[in-house]
Design a binder for these strands. Structure first.
Lengths: 239, 239, 239, 239
DNA sequence: AATGAATGAGCCTTCATTCAT
DNA sequence: AATGAATGAAGGCTCATTCAT
């Protein structure tokens, strides 16, 4: 039976605000401690509420985690999907997608890790909202690839879903060390390199025109630059 | 409530045997239940010993898991490393490596999952025996790529470590559904497809070029690639 | 997690009506879930009010239960007490009382159960309004019995209060299975049978020799058997 | 992860003993506080163990209660069933049964109450061990009644199961006040009174014939009863 | 009068690990 | 070496009740 009990100052907030505050607190705590080690009591304290209040808005700890991650996804997906359409050209689009994923991981390694460890391995993942969001997020690679194939820009026999796995798999493999907290990585440079290798690997006429703007003259100029540089470097080393 | 537990027949065994039995039991239980949900008591029962006995041979639950996984790795690495040298040709070697990883995951999805969820995300992973084993396991991709580059079979500007990430990342991304217990995949066919896309993406002279003759510009570009690679190699040796 | 809870239309109602609606909702919920498992929030929702409003009309959950049960009692007691006086004759009166109790349980097994489990065992029961109501309800048995004794219809040495306990106890014991939700019982037939056995058990001049087949001679023969057996047993023990 | 933690003096006991001690402690605590209010921590402390130890032997709080009550039942049922067969004569047998139930309630009102409130109302009661035990316990009334009917001692149309309900219902109704903690009752005198009213109510030829003088046969029968009872008592004492 | 957000006390339960026998 | 009884820390969750709006 509940006892009356001395109350602390009640701080009334509209539902929306309260939920937002709890989500934010939970995000911070989950990011810092991981799911298992996160304490509801810590989250409550950080949100400035009592433990029980959390259960007014969230079914249980797991649900809270899910909501945090979905909220996060929802946030950047909206941005992302408004930006993406304005990017033109296959290379640029792939680069944007790759850059975005790298950037997301770079910005929230701890949340990314939660997705990788708490959601994706879960047998029920497929029937999850997060799965659906992620699908939406990753399927654009497939669309881009198919369009490029249709346009003759990519080889006709490119399996689009493997390309998707390759891109996301590569990124996530590459960033594991950072996600674990070891060192750092450069988002832009890495995006360039991955995009390059992928693009060139898929292009129908390899170096022959990733960028249609590049005229033979321009290519020869680049070549000259590179040769000069190489020779100069050689001289520097073995004078 | 535990069962009445009739006094078990005391059964002395040489240390080796006992350890092997516990490892096997632990492997089965961890594979079935995952790390958190696995119970020492289940492992003990399956191994035909009492809980306390496990602590004679293993420091704690985590240590037991580690030993299980290292034992598993040790097992297939030995085989693998004896097989690999006899595989000739870049395509074949890549194919072997890719096939092997697919095959490993296909054979032990649950243990693979443990590696993905319990070890790799761990901040201390890098200083782990498993990390070292894995390094040995995956670094062959780098060797193969570098050799192929040196031989002019792959483009000169291919970043070997990105290729490694791409291959392992792709495989793991591709197999997540299976690891979660959804559906199945064909090891051989998948190995072929991944090898193909990777190889063709890196090959200096893509077969798919309608006209096998390179343009003069392309030849010059290859020359530049080689020069750059040579300089880079030079630098590495005489810094 | 509670539902988003769109702001309900404020709906002012006269106190009487509001109380009645809450009582009805509470009755349904308590009947369905029992006291412990009933949720104030469920009751509120069903009554179309908000939790806090319940506390304007009832002190607490327990008080609400009490009011529900008293209200129920009040309802059938009024009917009952207006009917009873018109029933004539001891047998008919007993039958009516028994029938009424059976009928009450049959009509509201869940509420009956609440009385049996939540009120009667309570140490404070005796100082309860419900106790008083119940007393009024059951004491008529005593009146009937005493009148029948006075009239010579029942044996002179019949302890009226034991008869009361016997009647109500029998009924409640007999109906437990039904109250638990197992099967059903026939109110009328059962009332007949219980009334019969009670009436004949108390009647001063039983209507007939129950078993006409048993002659005095047979009884004497049985007696002889028993006496012999007793004596023989005696001899065996204390020779 | 469990911390090492300072230990108190470990007090090793064979399973049997430990279980017995926990049962005893639980019995006391449940009897004192009822099920809901009983604390596992109190039980543990009283048993001289740590809370967790209780869960080695009992699945949960409910299971513990169940075991306590079954143990209690088991205890008196054994005694009871060894005594009963030596009681001779219908009157004596009924009296013994009634006396035993009164005596049980008198000796353990709190446990009796637990049975009445926590077990019997439960929808699953019927599939319970306790139900089976209770069945065994109460069904003897039916056997006795049927035998008496067969022997012509009771009226032929007596419904045995109603008699059982009447006896147990009467006893329990009668003892509610005591079970609630109000006052006391005399086991023996009450047993006599209930037995009398039941016996006379069922007897084929009630002694209560208008003429208070018993018939010679009836007097002899009573005599036989007493002799039998005496012999039975004798046997119990000098086996 | 009505709303509904916020409170908060505290119990049951788990299970890796230890250590007396 | 083997047993298995005992430990004990700690955290998720519930829900009647209050009270600011």
């Amino acid at each position: 039976m509940q006892q009356p009990a001395r109350r602390r100052q009640v701080n009334r907030l509209p539902r929306e605000r309260r939920v937002a505050e709890i989500l934010e607190a939970a995000r911070a705590v989950f990011a810092q401690s991981g799911y298992e080690n996160a304490l509801i009591s810590d989250i409550a304290e950080r949100a400035g509420v009592v433990e029980g209040s959390i259960y007014r808005y969230f079914e249980n700890k797991r649900d809270l985690l899910t909501k945090v991650v979905e909220h996060w996804y929802g946030g950047f997906l909206a941005d992302d999907e408004s930006q993406f359409p304005s990017v033109r050209g296959t290379w640029n689009r792939l680069r944007y997608i790759i850059w975005h994923h790298l950037s997301t991981i770079h910005g929230e390694p701890a949340l990314s890790r939660l997705v990788f460890t708490e959601f994706r391995p879960n047998p029920a993942y497929r029937s999850t909202t997060l799965f659906a969001l992620n699908r939406r997020y990753t399927s654009r690679v497939i669309a881009v690839v198919k369009e490029a194939v249709a346009a003759g820009e990519f080889r006709a026999d490119v399996p689009a879903n493997l390309v998707r796995d390759m891109i996301y798999g590569c990124i996530e493999h590459y960033t594991w060390a950072f996600v674990r907290g070891e060192g750092d990585f450069e988002v832009d440079a890495t995006a360039d390199r991955i995009t390059d290798i992928v693009y060139r690997g898929l292009a129908a006429k390899p170096e022959a025109a990733p960028d249609p703007m590049m005229s033979p003259i321009a290519r020869l100029e680049r070549l000259a630059d590179r040769l000069e540089a190489a020779v100069a470097a050689q001289n520097r080393k073995t004078p």
